[in-house]
């Protein structure tokens, strides 16, 4: 993994949700939720299906309107800031991304430069340098001239991440970035985000499905259940058998991950336990 894109990290941005409520068509999914995202750290949001974790991320990203409350960016109400200014601070990878037919990797990644370009925005050689560095950082520099549809799922996800990197924000929000990837590519992607966080101090917030990977990669773990935060903090103290039962309604044993030492959730189902004599 080569050097990550410039510039030197700005003072880590504070992203705070204050009493936010979000919903769809009058149905509230999240009611009066508070969350302070630790600046310069990796935060993972986990929880059962339909607990509102993606909705919360969309609210933080200004992709979904708040019905109540505020999202503060460095202490200022993000909804009152110009979208372009927010786009220079917060990069977002939504859950599903569809590229236009025939678009090439370099062109797609270059679209991440949009908030940095003026009204008659033409790409400059500075933009080219940022795009090249984003491709290098995501390990896809050799794909620059290839059409997106020729790439594998793992490569495509890297292209989208490279686009978010080219946006040069100090906060990156990702909605289930590992969903369509096999386990090797999941690890590769989470390693990439960790490198980004450690080398540039980028604040990373991601919604993840996979509890054990979340516990391993997150500095700060947020467990959600039914539209509220069931527990948050250091994964080691948050992810207990009690929390898993409360949030997921699942019995589990939690043991130390033999590789990382982070909590490892081993679920207990009806069958296949040691005393299952079937």
């Amino acid at each position: 993994m080569s050097a990550l894109p410039v510039p030197a990290p700005a003072p880590a941005a504070g992203l705070v949700a204050e009493g936010v409520s979000l919903g769809y068509d009058g149905r509230r999914v999240i009611e009066g939720l508070d969350l302070a995202v630790p600046p310069g750290r990796i935060t993972a949001i986990v929880g059962p299906n339909a607990c509102g974790k993606s909705t919360l991320l969309r609210g933080l990203a200004r992709l979904h309107p708040l019905e109540a409350g505020r999202v503060l960016l460095d202490g200022r109400d993000a909804s009152r800031l110009p979208r372009r200014d927010v786009a220079r601070r917060i990069g977002v990878l939504p859950q599903s991304s569809v590229a236009p037919d025939g678009v090439r990797v370099a062109d797609l990644v270059a679209r991440g430069r949009y908030p940095h370009q003026g009204w008659f925005g033409r790409h400059s050689s500075d933009d080219d340098a940022v795009v090249a560095e984003a491709l290098a950082a995501t390990g896809i520099a050799d794909l620059a001239g290839r059409p997106i549809e020729e790439l594998s799922g793992g490569q495509r996800q890297r292209v989208w991440i490279a686009m978010v990197l080219a946006q040069q924000t100090d906060v990156v929000l990702l909605d289930e970035p590992t969903t369509f990837l096999d386990v090797a590519h999941q690890l590769e992607l989470l390693d990439l985000l960790t490198a980004l966080n450690r080398e540039r101090g980028t604040t990373v917030v991601m919604v993840l499905h996979e509890l054990n990977l979340a516990a391993r990669y997150a500095d700060h773990l947020v467990v959600m259940s039914a539209g509220r935060i069931a527990a948050e903090g250091d994964p080691g103290s948050v992810l207990t058998a009690g929390t898993v039962r409360e949030a997921f309604g699942l019995d589990a044993r939690v043991i130390p991950d033999p590789v990382s030492g982070s909590p490892l959730v081993v679920p207990i189902g009806r069958f296949h336990s040691a005393d299952d004599r079937m």
Partner: peptide
Amino acid sequence: ALGDDHARALGV
């Protein structure tokens, strides 16, 4: 052309 979510995230 990248869809509404991406466009909004890019400041549109």
